[in-house]
Amino acid sequence: MPKILSIETSTTVCSVALTVDGNSLASQKLFLEKSHSTLLTVVIEQIMKQVGMEMTELDAVAVSKGPGSYTGLRIGVSTAKGLCYALDKPLIAVNTLLVMANEVNQQNHSQALLCPMIDARRMEVYTALYDGELNELEKTSAKILEENSFDETLNQKQVLFFGNGADKFMALKNGEANAVFIDNITPSAWSVGLLANQAFLKGDFEDVAYFEPFYLKDFVATKPKKVL
């Protein structure tokens, strides 16, 4: 019965969950921008206190590895690695897009294809395509959305689009019968925990010393706005 603390910080939403044997005992999600660095450890402490468990009782720490926000991923992964070092526990990392697909798939009774999208600015998104068994049909990539994007797939199958990058694709696919858009889906730590439980049973762990987030694209710094 693996006890896994899961961390998800790949977008503006910060979440933490504790799962035991694949069942979520407690989870918390903060919809506060730029809260990761100040509140992540606080939420972790609250979760552990809520379930009455000591950190030393954990069997592993899991983290959403990306793609997503450069800063958010860096904070989440560094926190997870720090806990693994301090507690001498294994690290599990899960693709963020798979985390989102897994969450939506809990209610995917139609067996439609799953297409999570994370906003990568302008008309670009981080995306992948999964079937109802969470098999990867299209690998994770940074895709510039156009009117004919996913046309070949949509001609054959219904596709569920979701995530904070899906809105701009909805504007291009308005009226497309096989394109279904789901609102308010953000990566959740409890979904990280469900996938991490499977990885734990397989012994699929990361090298804590060398593991890095899956940024997908190089970080591009922006100049701060001038104060008038």
Rank of each mutant, 00 (worst) to 15 (best):
F161A: 07
V192K: 04
I144K: 01
M53H: 00
L195T: 01
Q156P: 07
S78T: 13
V99E: 05
L5Q: 11
E212F: 06
M53R: 11
E206P: 08
T41L: 13
Q107D: 14
K143S: 09
S69L: 09
T127K: 07
L39H: 13
V13H: 00
K3D: 10
P187G: 10
L32K: 07
P116S: 00
Q106C: 13
S6D: 05
Q46E: 15
P224L: 02
I118G: 01
N105M: 13
L39R: 13
G82H: 06
T12G: 02
Q158E: 15
Y85N: 10
G22R: 06
G193T: 03
A142D: 05
A60D: 06
F181W: 12
E8N: 02
S27G: 10
K34Y: 05
L195R: 02
N105H: 07
V99G: 03
R122M: 04
K223Y: 01
F169V: 02
I47L: 01
H109L: 10
L137P: 14
G76I: 04
T71Y: 04
C14I: 01
H36E: 08
F162A: 00
G72C: 07
S10I: 11
K226L: 13
D204G: 03
P187R: 11
E54A: 13
T127M: 03
S10V: 10
S188K: 11
F181S: 10
L195W: 01
H36I: 00
M170G: 08
Q198A: 15
S35M: 02
L134T: 01
S27P: 07
E146G: 04
E147A: 15
A112L: 05
T19G: 07
D151P: 02
A17T: 01
V20T: 13
N108T: 07
N95S: 13
G175H: 08
L134C: 02
L160A: 00
V20C: 11
G203D: 09
D151Q: 13
